[in-house]
């Protein structure tokens, strides 16, 4: 048990509690909620055991699902995001990713914003498609994806700035 593992476990539990007890009940403008629990998936160390990472993402999504009574939509979206993460990293950080081991709190802030934006939009698209389960209301779906994404990105970036100690 090293320091990093303990930090990750604590953040896992804290994010679930924050999401289930507080952030699911914000309902800004009636229906917009931020889903910051995906910050766990986004900032998971890059040189990792991918099978374990997928399983942890699934577990995280499932816990959020239990709190919000939504079947398995958060679990599906989290697993999808975890699986689709390497191409996103490659796109946003370029060369850095090829050398393995990006330190998220030491990377360039611009690339980090790109990375979070792509990740959040992908996650929300899967999430709301499964929640609606119905492509006849595609306008409603896209509206929800766009507004919730904006809210989530802002909250994610703020949380990241507050909790990462060293940033260049």
């Amino acid at each position: 048990m090293n320091n990093l593992a303990i930090t990750k476990i604590v953040s896992f539990l804290l994010l679930i509690l924050a999401q289930g007890l507080v952030l699911n009940h914000i309902n800004f403008l009636g229906y917009i909620n931020p889903f910051i629990y995906i910050l766990f998936i986004l900032t998971y160390p890059t040189s990792n055991n991918r099978v374990l990472f997928l399983f942890l993402s699934f577990l995280l999504g499932l816990c959020v699902d239990i709190f919000s009574d939504s079947g398995g939509v958060h679990a599906a979206a989290s697993v999808f995001l975890a699986y689709a993460r390497p191409p996103m990293l490659k796109f946003s950080f370029g060369m850095l990713y090829d050398h393995q081991g990006i330190k998220f709190n030491q990377s360039e802030f611009g690339s980090f914003i790109t990375y979070v934006t792509i990740g959040v939009v992908t996650h929300h698209l899967v999430l709301f498609s499964l929640e609606f389960f119905n492509f006849s209301e595609i306008i409603e779906l896209l509206k929800k994806v766009v507004f919730s994404s904006i809210f989530t990105i802002i909250v994610c970036l703020i949380t990241n700035i507050i909790f990462s100690r060293k940033r260049r």
Binding site: F58, V73, L130
Partner: peptide
Amino acid sequence: TFLMFMLLFGLSIALTIQN
């Protein structure tokens, strides 16, 4: 990795449909 992804994703979809 891919098989794990398919397994977990399938499980989540099954839970969604059941809900």
